[in-house]
Design a protein around this nucleic acid. Structure first.
Lengths: 107, 107
DNA sequence: GACTTATATAAGTTCATCCTGACATAGTCG
DNA sequence: CGACTATGTCAGGATGAACTTATATAAGTC
């Protein structure tokens, strides 16, 4: 499963968003996601497995708890892929800025 | 269909890569992709449709030809979503730079 | 040790996506 | 006009992803 497929699922994106705020226990993630998406704990556990297996997250054990942290490597790969398109929106931003400058001058 | 799902498919990513080099005719895209992935022209046409419908590409007609250009809006959205993780790899880059600097000093 | 809590896995079902093959539309050229 | 080229659409089948329910493991608690 490729990095973009992993990000294709809204549940996994949400989990990554939670992890972007720092290390999270499996329990915290599961209850947050269950509340938002109304899926079983098993479903969440399976998404966590995908994130582990594709390198988006790593785990460490602490007693029975499992603490997840994001690993940015695959996210970085996605970002690198996007590089080739970046000039397109910076062009658009430039155009927007020009437009803004023009509007300001008119005042 | 969400932007990440669109990018989940390797054929669609390849088409976008081709489009990143500028406007491309349907024919050119189709033959390139057919050669690389060994799929039918219909399959490519359907991927083009997805790209149109999700706003990744726009088309203009010229006789019977259809010329595609990339529209960066949804790609930009993906980029914005990635923002929250960007600090992770800039941290890693910082660490790498520190390491590099140290190595240089040793020489 | 028995019970509970935290987490992960397995089996099976459902549903969406991607593909192929057949057909449709519309310009172009003799 | 009729044949040909370029492109797109439709119906149906195969595959795989995501879910649920049930089960497994292992660490704390009494």
């Amino acid at each position: 499963m490729n990095a973009f497929d992993v990000l294709g699922d809204p549940v996994r994106r949400r989990i990554l968003e939670l992890l972007s705020e720092g290390e999270q226990g499996s329990g915290a993630i599961t209850s947050a996601v269950r509340a938002e998406f109304g899926i079983s704990h098993s479903a969440v556990a399976q998404h966590l497995r995908v994130l582990r297996e594709t390198g988006f997250a790593t785990v460490r054990a602490e007693g029975t708890r499992r603490l997840y942290v994001v690993d940015s490597t695959p996210l970085n790969e996605v970002d690198v892929w996007l590089d080739r398109f970046r000039r397109f929106w910076s062009q658009r931003l430039d155009a927007l800025e020009t437009e803004l400058a023009r509007t300001r001058r008119k005042k």
